[in-house]
Design a protein around this nucleic acid. Structure first.
Ligand code: ZN
Ligand code: ZN
Ligand code: ZN
Ligand code: ZN
Lengths: 149, 149
DNA sequence: AAAATTAGTGTTATTATATAACGGTTTGTT
DNA sequence: AACAAACCGTTATATAATAACACTAATTTT
């Protein structure tokens, strides 16, 4: 599997494998499959919906199978969790250490990841002004995307 | 039950009753009890933990009892939900129409509500710049509060 | 190469969070 | 009093997530 420039998903999976191996982490077949499934989806996917899809090729998959795999992908930043919907989305920029915010369209389900440093800094600053030290942020906006208006 | 200036919780409950009645909503005993329970807690409380406490005086309370009551309180802005922990906190400013953000201490569990208009506007603007219309925001920071550092 | 260690997976069971549906009761309105 | 709407009791079920343990594959040490 190489970066051919032909298939965006294949290329992204390839990048993910390189990324993991560079960090000494094993990008197993299961992890690859789950990551690829998330790349194929548009919008976020719940763990059990993902499980159903995974079962098509991994008939013995169970909840723990999925959650363990998601935990790995989350830990290495290959995916993100949407807290307000308990769902997961693939990240395309896992190699660039970015702040994460989401715009979630409640009409079509589309999830757009934005990386606003300004937004992150604003929250950090607000916290700092009351002596709070931020370790991680959850910023999610629900509403209507451009296409749905 | 009047605003005596003696007991902050009693006063807050009184304000909540006035607020609901002004809107033609019924602030029933159940709703009052649940709101008061949340006021007594420090930090956020899960629905089932709340249920256990509620059962001490309402022995026949069930999950639906709690969730229905929480739905009402959420709808009228008397409480907020913390999406990243599936927990609920009482709001003390339900009458002033404010943006909502939370600073959640992962050490002591304290939840501080802040109301940064600047933060809200920054997110709205970021969304607007890609044609996204925001209906509601979830902004939660996890980390360490001043007291725990 | 064999042994030991660590990481990953299969499997079963359980816990935690949330909603659906239906009937009865209370409240407000006509 | 009759009616409608809102509220609550109750049972069942759906959805989301983790715990625990045995087994296997990969990596490291000897
Ligand atoms: Zn990302
Ligand atoms: Zn849309
Ligand atoms: Zn508030
Ligand atoms: Zn603290």
């Amino acid at each position: 599997m190489t970066d051919t420039g032909q298939n965006p998903i294949t290329d992204q999976v390839y990048k993910a494998r390189q990324f993991c191996e560079d960090k000494g982490a094993r990008f197993t077949l299961l992890r690859e499959k789950v990551y690829a499934l998330l790349l194929e989806q548009q919008g976020a996917v719940g763990a059990y919906e993902l499980l159903d899809t995974l079962k098509l090729t991994e008939s013995n998959a169970k909840p723990a199978t999925v959650y363990r795999t998601l935990d790995f992908l989350l830990e290495f930043g290959l995916i993100h969790k949407i807290e307000s919907t308990n769902a997961f989305v693939a990240c395309h920029h896992f190699d660039c250490n970015h702040p994460v915010q989401f715009l979630i369209c409640d009409t079509c389900g589309d999830v757009k990841e934005i990386q606003s440093v300004g937004l992150k800094d604003t929250l950090d600053k607000q916290a700092q002004s009351v002596g709070f030290r931020v370790v991680n942020q959850t910023i999610e906006a629900h509403g209507t995307c451009a296409a749905c208006q």
